[in-house]
């Protein structure tokens, strides 16, 4: 559906997007995830034709963005960050205007506005000026704006930033509803957001793609490489415990964790991917008179992956 090759964009000397390759299939909700300033917005702006790439190619369906920009714009519904709509217009007039620009016939226009009024819950605010709406409401109008022509591709830049949890849930429902048959690309710096909404996550940092895969695959991949096990013991001291555990095969590090109870020794043992590590730790403890309070495998959440991939240095 969307094919991006060697996409690069400079602002003066600053490289915002650095040689990105990306393929998005039809019917996929893809999340572009990255810290602020990672190049998410720039990437989306190039996909929608608002910014021209410094180098690289973008093709959507069979259209190239250099030659058939107008055709590509017809395929895409785009909501820029913080929904910059015309504040002096009424919601209905605004949607009517967008539908006119997109060349919808009169009957189809009415029909779509009614459909979107239901989907985005706009009935009560149809005749209010956009400038008077709260951020959440404006975002819903923005979504309606992007979906007015029932586009094949929906591109959303930070669709839920600055909204309260209820509003986020509403927007998420609308996106998921739309994403059942259509292609959606959204950017976010909130992990739970990407985890909850997207089928696939592309993590971007400093203009480069650092990870790409389905939510589950990303989690599995990184837990396969390294495991962390937390152990809480009574009647043990750090020196002797770490000496014992260090002898176990595969253990790469032992770390003391502050615990609230001074009696309890809490450790974090990291090891490279061996499946029976917990067994070995257990039998190791059985030989002593320590009391085992806790033995748990820590799966790396998406958050850890994100931090690790995008941290400084």
């Amino acid at each position: 559906m969307i094919h991006v090759e060697n996409l690069t964009r400079y602002y003066g000397d600053f490289c915002a997007v650095d040689n990105i390759d990306l393929d998005v299939r039809k019917g996929e909700i893809t999340g572009l995830l990255g810290p602020n300033g990672a190049g998410k917005t720039t990437t989306l702006r190039m996909l929608t034709g608002y910014l021209a790439p410094t180098s690289g190619t973008i093709s959507i369906k069979d259209y190239s963005i250099d030659d058939d920009l107008l055709e590509i714009k017809k395929l895409i519904g785009y909501l820029p960050e913080s929904a910059p709509l015309y504040h002096n217009m009424l919601v209905y007039d605004y949607l009517d205007y967008i539908a006119d620009i997109r060349g919808l016939s009169k009957g189809r226009k009415e029909e779509r506005i009614q459909e979107l009024a239901d989907l985005c819950d706009l009935r009560a605010i149809m005749h209010r000026p956009i400038g008077e709406l709260s951020k959440g409401l404006r975002q819903r109008v923005g979504l309606a704006h992007a979906m007015i022509e029932d586009p094949e591709i929906l591109i959303l830049d930070e669709p839920t930033s600055g909204l309260d949890p209820n509003q986020i849930a509403e927007i998420r429902d609308i996106i998921r509803h739309f994403g059942r048959e259509k292609t959606v690309i959204l950017s976010t710096h909130i992990l739970s957001e990407a985890e909850a909404t997207c089928d696939r996550i592309v993590i971007i940092d400093k203009g480069r793609i650092v990870a790409d895969g389905s939510t589950e695959a990303l989690e599995q991949e990184s837990t396969a490489q390294e495991k962390i096990i937390t152990v809480a013991l009574l009647k043990a001291d750090f020196a002797s415990a770490s000496m014992r555990f260090r002898l176990l095969p595969g253990v790469t590090g032992i770390e003391l964790v502050e615990s609230a109870d001074p009696e309890v020794l809490k450790l974090k043992i990291s090891a490279d991917g061996r499946d029976n590590l917990r067994e070995m730790i257990y039998s190791c403890i059985k030989e002593t008179d320590w009391v085992l309070l806790e033995l748990a495998k820590e799966t790396k959440s998406l958050e850890n992956i994100f931090r690790e991939l995008t941290k400084e240095g």
Binding site: T48, Y50, K73, K74, P80, S82, P84, Y86, I98, I101
Partner: peptide
């Protein structure tokens, strides 16, 4: 200034 320029230019207009 308000950013609606981006929204306008990403509509199918030249």
């Amino acid at each position: 200034h308000t950013g609606s320029y981006e929204m306008l230019l990403t509509l199918p207009v030249t």
